[in-house]
Amino acid sequence: MTAELRGTTWDHPRGYAPLDTLARLDARSGPRGPYPYEAVRRPLRWERRPLEDFESRPLATLTADYDVLVVDHVGLGTAVADGCLLPMDELFAGSELAAWRDGTVGASYDSYVVDGRAWALPVDATAQVAAARRDLASALPGTWAEVRELARSLPVALCLGGPHAFLTFCALCVAQGAEPFRYEGAVVPPDAGEAALDTMAELVARCDSEVWRHGPAGLLEALAAGDGPAYCPLVHGYVTYAGDLRYADAPAWEPGGRPGSVLGGAGLAVSRPRAADPAVRDAIRGHLRRLCSPAVQRDLYPAAGGQPAARSTWTDAEASALSGGFYRATLATIEVAWVRPATAGYVPFQDAASRLLRDGAADRVPPRRLLHDLDTLYRSWRCP
């Protein structure tokens, strides 16, 4: 029997349930249901790792053991520099890649492009959006001024665990028209940065620290529990919780403005050393084609609890209805979400910046001083 391939993904049902479902179908002989595929000569077995590992662990430490990796796009710059991944144009023709790019929501495909080449294929998509308990009858805030007003009467939470303190800061700046890393010696202009930190400080002061220290899944579970926060203006959306929560576009800074949000999601990358064997490479190609096929993305992924990268799901009325309105309610945000740089060394900076902002929020550090410290950290990263 031909040896199976090994894949690694993160340990939340959104990250592993669709992969496991398709793998079970692959293990049977012949095509099953509406998911056509080539003959599977090498089954693909998926193993799970913690979300914190998914967000921060260098991919070069995984490519010796896994053939296919579910990855966060921000780690690709370091991985490309390390030479541990196989670019997608060595597996697929340009026309096939172009079709996938055209079929994905927002910048999901482009976020995996480094130095003009795609290093992963988008299989999952998300962005920071607003979430609220379903018993919150009032209309959800459309601007950050309205968020601050709501926080005076209802428990409002921020999501600041892991890298998300820095991502929240970035989203607030994007809403003001100040996309990060476009300014000499500073992450953002002082006025936008201080306004973002002032908003975060006000909301953190009104929120239980045990809640705002959560990552997205933990924060959404706290909302769904019904006895804690009622609303979070900015958290990476998980369709998993759509039965218990209402979702909406991320707030804008001004009425009618751009929703401030940072793109997330996950892509399928391939280990260069493991794909050196032509037979292994062919088997990997078949699995990636299957996972990114319109039928799997449109039908199997949502049915299995996943969150596909295919725009056809995000725009489909039936898919949105089955998800409690999740897809259509947040489509405008994901289409314009800001893409973080996939630059070598970015992930350690993101982690350090988030710790700085999270500790600063806990210690009530004044926004001007905190922004100064963030820019100092940024300059040490850019000019070692």
Rank of each mutant, 00 (worst) to 15 (best):
M1H: 06
T2W: 09
E4N: 07
E4A: 15
E4M: 10
E4Y: 06
G7L: 07
T8Y: 09
W10P: 05
Y16D: 11
R24H: 15
R24T: 15
A27D: 14
R28M: 14
S29W: 00
S29P: 12
G30I: 12
R32F: 02
R32P: 08
P36L: 06
Y37F: 02
A39S: 08
P43G: 04
P50A: 01
P50I: 09
L51G: 10
R57H: 14
L62S: 08
A64Q: 11
A64K: 15
Y66S: 01
V68C: 04
L69T: 05
L69W: 10
V74N: 07
G77C: 07
G83C: 10
E90G: 09
A93C: 05
E96A: 14
R101N: 12
V105W: 05
Y109C: 04
D110Q: 13
Y112W: 09
Y112F: 15
V114A: 03
G116C: 09
A118K: 13
A120F: 06
V123L: 11
A125L: 12
S138M: 14
A139W: 00
A145W: 02
A151S: 15
R152E: 15
L154A: 15
L160N: 15
L172P: 12
V174G: 03
G177E: 14
E179Q: 13
Y183M: 08
Y183Q: 04
G185A: 12
V188T: 05
T199D: 03
M200P: 01
M200H: 10
A201V: 02
A201G: 13
A201K: 11
C207G: 01
W212P: 07
W212V: 07
R213E: 11
G215Q: 05
E221G: 03
A222T: 02
A222Q: 04
A230P: 07
A230D: 02
V235M: 10
Y241I: 04
A242Q: 11
G243I: 03
G243S: 06
R246D: 05
Y247G: 01
A248Y: 03
D249I: 01
A252P: 09
A252W: 02
W253F: 09
W253S: 00
G256N: 00
S261F: 07
G264S: 10
V270G: 14
P273W: 02
A275M: 09
A275H: 05
R281F: 08
H287D: 01
L288K: 01
R290P: 05
A303P: 10
A310D: 15
A310R: 13
R311G: 04
T313F: 00
G325R: 04
T333L: 01
A342E: 04
P348N: 03
A352M: 08
R358C: 02
A361L: 14
R364S: 14
P367G: 13
R379M: 05
R382Y: 00
P384E: 09
